[in-house]
Design a protein around this nucleic acid. Structure first.
Length: 430
DNA sequence: TCTGGGGTCCTAGGACCC
DNA sequence: TCTGGGGTCCTAGGACCC
């Protein structure tokens, strides 16, 4: 069994936690530059404010309906998140932090599950002043579904049986009740079914989760993918997703921002990109990784009339590194290559890619020093070719031959990065 | 005037190998 | 006359998540 615990309107709850006077008021937390809504209190939702809605579209509600807006303060939310996670982990034996405000909990061996969920929920509410919903089910997807019921039945009384409010354990439902709950749930509410697939399902006459759960697996796989097939299996109680308590190192690290006001000149753009690169490098070191490539992009607002500009470039780093200086220099090199005058740029960013564990890399460098006889030479060559692709290194008449350091050749057997990628400048879309 | 930021996974198709 | 086929790797793009 899995539980999914998730905080209600988390960012808003954090703000209310520090300003109790905001309780019962419509509150919205805004993204960077106060661009759009990223969290809404129940009262704000009742005013019709949508997730991601631009601020200027609902700003008038501050005057007419007493709407309170707050600029996001992520360090505060991160701090409250870690406290919340710590309390929540008392519910089971193993946990997976799924997002800043959600935790999956493995309930193996846990007795009196529902009562325990209530205890933990109350503990969080008393300790942090943050309300949570808990969903419990035999698969992660069903735990998510149960969590949806826990929250929806509280927000919209009558949508599901009232006893499922706040804490919903599917094990306590009869098969008929479970079927009725699935039938009352639009497909788009199911975890893994986004707007696109939801629309396709609607077109096919699949409107609710019960219908989705009864689809033929082969058909689902053919029409969509194995991801959807897993969702359907999980809806039927067959676990396909496991608890991932040890987070894998990230495969990419990004730092991207919208500009408060458009940027047209190269100098401020370089300044911004340098800052993004430096922050990304910091995150990279925190993870103990090094990056092999860096992608830099800049674009105009897609909401504004032409001329539009949308370009990116991949710059190979001279060697895999987490060095801020090298990463910033490469990012600046990249942005200079793609920059063109005459555009009102609204957003730019830096993405570090081709990440490797720093310790692993060091081991391979050490391996090079240890080569002292032909046997170990071949072993090393095999190992490098196995890891980075056939032909990365081969033995020449005078010993080891390679055009570049082996780790730089990982993906470029057929698309050399230096000769082509740098030369390819994407077209400007006008 | 004003529209977020940071991720993951899967698939199709091209290129290449033998 | 008749011009293979299976496997792998890589990338771009699409879809999803919070």
């Amino acid at each position: 069994m899995f539980a999914l615990l998730d905080a209600n309107n988390f960012y808003v709850s954090c703000e209310k936690c520090f300003q109790p006077a905001l309780r019962d008021k419509p509150v919205v937390v805004l993204s960077a530059n106060d661009g759009c809504a990223i969290a809404r209190s129940e009262e704000a939702k009742a005013l019709g404010i949508k997730m991601g809605e631009p601020y200027f579209k609902f700003k008038h509600l501050e005057l007419t309906h007493g709407l309170v807006t707050r600029s996001a303060c992520f360090p505060l939310y991160a701090d409250l998140s870690s406290r919340l996670m710590s309390i929540a982990s008392g519910m089971g034996c193993d946990v997976e932090q799924y997002s800043i405000d959600e935790q999956f909990i493995d309930l193996s061996g846990v007795r009196e599950i529902t009562r325990r969920a209530w205890v933990i929920r109350d503990r969080i509410h008393r300790g942090l002043g943050i309300a949570c919903g808990v969903g419990i089910g035999p698969t992660k997807t069903l735990a998510k579904f149960a969590n949806h019921i826990a929250k929806a039945s509280e927000r919209r009384p009558g949508s599901y049986p009232a006893r499922l409010q706040r804490v919903c354990n599917l094990a306590e439902l009869s098969p008929q009740e479970l079927a009725a709950a699935l039938e009352a749930t639009p497909v788009g509410e199911i975890w893994g079914v986004g707007p696109r697939i939801s629309a396709q399902l609607y077109d096919a006459g699949i409107l609710n989760a019960l219908q989705l759960s009864k689809l033929d697996l082969g058909t689902v796989r053919r029409h969509w993918s194995v991801v959807m097939e897993r969702t359907v299996r999980e809806l039927n109680g067959e676990p396909c997703l496991t608890l991932e308590s040890q987070p894998e190192p990230k495969q990419m690290i990004a730092c991207t921002r919208s500009f408060g006001s458009p940027v047209s000149e190269l100098d401020p753009l370089i300044e911004a990109v340098s800052d993004f690169a430096s922050r990304a490098a910091q995150k990279l070191r925190l993870q103990g990784s090094v990056a092999g490539q860096i992608q830099v992009f800049a674009h105009t607002s897609r909401f504004r009339p032409p001329p539009h500009f949308h370009r990116s470039i991949v710059v190979p780093l001279i060697r895999p590194t987490a060095d801020t200086g090298l990463i910033v220099a490469s990012a600046v090199h990249g942005i200079k290559r793609i920059y063109r005058e005459g555009f009102e740029l609204k957003k730019a960013g830096v993405i570090l890619m081709d990440l490797n564990d720093k310790a692993d890399l060091q081991h391979e460098l050490d391996l090079g020093d240890e080569i002292c006889d032909r046997g170990s030479l071949f072993a090393a060559v095999d190992k490098l070719n196995q890891r980075y692709g056939r032909g990365t290194v081969h033995i020449g008449s005078t010993g080891l031959q390679t055009n570049r350091a082996p780790w730089q050749q990982r993906q470029d057997q057929r698309s050399p990065r230096y000769s082509t990628v740098l030369a390819e400048i994407p077209e400007v879309k006008c």
